[in-house]
């Protein structure tokens, strides 16, 4: 049981850290919850039996790092459109070409 919590806890917390630094940072919440639950499970087991608590510390530390990144990005990261210069150029040239193309089309308004 202890090994299951340690393995799931580590996988979830590492996944949470990875997700938290990508644009899909909101998804990191799910592995953070799983890692916390695994960490709590290990705390519960460590009270019953005398087991090493090193793994618990690492799982909680990674989960807190992931959660901090997620909260920081949710609050401070503004949704802004990147460089659209190329799109604007395509837009302008497309309009110019369209006017030429339309001269060739029979328009019955």
């Amino acid at each position: 049981m202890k090994n299951v919590f340690v393995i799931f806890g580590f996988i979830s917390s590492i996944l949470a850290v990875i997700l938290s630094i990508t644009p899909l940072y909101k998804l990191a919440l799910f592995p953070v919850i799983i890692a916390f639950l695994c960490g709590l499970g290990l705390v519960f087991l460590s009270r019953k039996k005398q087991i090493k608590t090193k793994a618990i510390q690492y799982i909680f530390l990674l989960s807190i790092i992931a959660l901090s990144f997620t909260i920081y990005k949710s609050i401070f990261q503004k949704a802004e459109v990147g460089n659209t210069e190329e799109l604007e150029k395509r837009d302008e040239s497309s309009e110019e070409e369209a006017i030429k193309e339309l001269e060739d089309i029979e328009i019955d308004i």
């Binding site: 990508t22 644009p23 899909l24 990261q77 949704a79 802004e80 459109v81 990147g82 460089n83 659209t84 190329e86 799109l87 395509r90 837009d91 309009e95 369209a98 006017i99 339309l102 001269e103 328009i107 308004i109």
Partner: peptide
């Protein structure tokens, strides 16, 4: 939009991903 014979309406739709997604999956 005006051509030599008529006046038309240009309907334009553009989609651009936000900057944090550009390195992940850029859409223009």
């Amino acid at each position: 939009i005006s051509t030599s014979s008529s006046t038309l309406m240009r309907l334009k739709c553009t989609a651009a991903t936000y900057s944090n997604f550009d390195s992940f999956f850029k859409v223009r």
